[in-house]
Amino acid sequence: MKAELGLLMLIGAAFAVAPAFGESAGVADAIKARHGHFHDMGSDFKAAGDQLKSAAPDLNVVKASAAKVKDAAAQLPSWFPPGTGPESGLKTRAKAEIWKDPQGFSAAAHSFQVATVKLAALTQSSTDLGAIRAQFKATGEACGACHDKYRVPKD
């Protein structure tokens, strides 16, 4: 009787754990995809920044990069499905605060989105280098504002 109960519990436990195993593959993929998205956003940001650093920037490059950053930013909140934080045990710099403080995280993501929309719009409509450079800087600061709170600093 005791043995049977033990076996039943074992089977029950196996069923309870099984979905978690199935999920962990999804979690790993989600984290990997997130890193890919941020990598691409960094690359686009650099492409725009490289131009804006120079005396005679190619504004078409800036415009294209700003549009890509804006599109990516719109998707950004969806890159953080529940379970993809530090509790996953996988390599991620995402802090648990993202899910503990969803309103704060949404607000930070939103202000970043607003900044990227402004930057993209400005590069479409204007060739005023001073204004574009200022908005580029503001967008970078909006990235940083979120990272300060919701990303683990590098050692």
Binding site: G42, A47, D50, G140
Partner: peptide, 15 residues
Amino acid sequence: VDGIESGPLSDWVSF
């Protein structure tokens, strides 16, 4: 890592 800050010759190389 964010492509925001960089050294003076970073536009010679890819991200």
